[in-house]
Amino acid sequence: MIERHMTKTNMAFPVVSVSGSTTDEMYGVSGFPASYLVDANGVVIWEGHPGSLRSEMLVSALKEAAYVHPLEGKEFSSLNKQLAGQNFGAAYKIALKELLRAPDDAELLRAKASLDSILEAATSKAGAYSESGEFGLAMDAYEVLAKNFKGHPGADDAKLAMKTLSKNPAAKEELAAHKKMGKGAAAQLAGDREQAIKVYEGVVKKYPDTKAAGRAGSYLSRHP
């Protein structure tokens, strides 16, 4: 029945059908409709009635998520496929090749410029994390960059930065705390708030002087 309605009304987004109230309880939904804007890292950045979601909020979230709008034109289907899969390294290669054929194609030039700016923004973000002592977040950022831009020189630079970071004695404690934070995040994703709290309490206790402990503490203060 759901599928039929989706086809009939041209719904262009996925629908998930859940039964029972487990999902409502995990999210704390008490009225309908209720909506949550989730960023590229899975973190809730806004919640409320869908009608009160501002476009500025969406635009800034999409900017952070390294989104490239698909190119107009059937000839770009393979490039669009790589973009949709966030295989930006492969997409870049295709774009460069196509540009040799059509150096003035506006769509190709737009895509290449988007990819360049995504790479630049991601590199400078990772660098800024590293400089501010957020070594764990820097490591994650470099890892995503290396994965998304596989085959592009930017990915090799990211890998090198990861290697340097992992050998930096000043980053050791922060990286260990960050790794543990990942377990808390996994518990949150699984809807196990109790376990997440346990993990975050452990981080605060074991690595009190880290940035990660600050984040763990902020979660704990929101869920006393």
């Binding site: 629908v15 859940v18 409502d24 949150q188």
Partner: peptide, 19 residues
């Protein structure tokens, strides 16, 4: 139920995914 707050990780849900 305690409400999910900004800054929390959105939990996964079990169900049937369409489209």
């Amino acid at each position: 139920p305690e409400k999910l707050k900004v800054g929390d990780i959105a939990p996964d849900f079990e169900g049937e995914w369409f489209q």
